[in-house]
Amino acid sequence: MATRDGQRVIVVTGASGGVGRASARAFAARGDAVALLARGEDGLAGAEQDVRAAGGRALPIEVDVADNDAVQAAADRVEDELGEIDVWVNVAFSSVFAPFVDVAADEFQRATEVAYLGYVNGTRAALRQMLPRDRGAVVQVGSALAYRGIPLQSVYCGAKHAIQGFTESVRCELLHDRSRVRVTMVQLPAVNTPQFDWVLSRLRRHPKPVPPIYQPEIAARAVLYAADHPQRREYWVGGSTVGTLLGNKVAPGLLDRYLARTGYDSQQTGERAARLRPNLWQPADAAPGTDQGAHGSFDQVAHARSPQLWASQHHGLLAAACGAAATAGAAVWLARRRA
């Protein structure tokens, strides 16, 4: 896959902050041309500077992913100005931290339009460009919460569950049509992003990610790998993601009770809730000086490495190694029996 000048063209939604920002920077560092889709002017300007500093071409586009026509127009502009889209990465979202009964109907609807329908709109725009060429990849940035709901995040969990089902449906249709366009998911753990300073919250204390917390660059590496290897259905990032998903398969009822007991405190710091600039109705980084970049407020406790990510990317090698170890162990056992 190559553009008119040999670069690959990548589209990243939610590129002004967090995982989207880190992913855009990572794509740029290897020379890709990156279209940056987001609402916040200051964050977009910062992301554009990051991409250019990393050596990539940048095309910032101010767009609300909940607006399907605007997303389609953005895709057309990318193709006109950068070239044919090779990879589309859906990241953008908004949400509400609160018990479900404290979330107003219009807030739930708006967050769902961004966090779920934004992915639907992005995928539609990407496939409209990719299917006629019979090539390309869509990467859906998901979460362990696509499989396991937790308290205080009914909006976010509902959207991630919906994305999971939507993506599986689209994947089956592409396989039926024998298309070479691929759709894959990257299921993330808790990540240190600015969302915990941006998302509308009705909690008594300041919201935080559920530990263990990982830096957004970990997620970005997973997104890049998935973009290069979209044949896999999905990638799990972080040991906590693996533990959560496996635990939910084995004992979901026990997990319900555990989260009911621990899920409130684990998502709040000990500090009283600060006055946030919620990004639900308008971008939190719309004014000068409000660009927070990729990282949130938890650098001191966030992990910069994930051995499990390497394992996820090299599962074939690990399986072969385990098979070889098992064979060797069986040979030793037989030799001892014969002796």
Rank of each mutant, 00 (worst) to 15 (best):
C157K: 05
P212T: 05
G158S: 04
D197P: 15
P151G: 06
P194R: 02
P212W: 01
G149E: 08
L152A: 12
Y156H: 10
R232T: 10
R171S: 06
A190F: 03
R178K: 12
A227T: 00
P216D: 03
P207R: 06
L175K: 14
L200V: 06
A126M: 02
R205P: 07
R178H: 15
T167A: 05
R171L: 04
D228L: 06
E217M: 09
V210L: 14
H229A: 09
G136M: 06
P209F: 03
G238P: 07
L127E: 00
C157Q: 07
Y147E: 15
Y147S: 15
T167I: 04
V223F: 02
G136C: 08
R233V: 15
V191C: 11
R202I: 07
R233W: 13
T193P: 00
V210W: 14
K208V: 13
V210A: 14
Y235T: 07
L175V: 13
R232H: 13
R180D: 15
S154M: 09
L175E: 15
G239M: 11
M185K: 08
P212E: 04
D228M: 07
L174Q: 02
V210G: 12
C172P: 11
Y225T: 15
A190E: 07
M130Q: 03
D228K: 07
P216Y: 01
Y156Q: 12
G165L: 05
H161K: 03
G136T: 07
V181M: 03
A159Q: 05
P216R: 02
V138C: 01
H229L: 06
T167K: 02
G142V: 01
S201Y: 01
S154P: 09
A220Q: 05
A227Q: 01
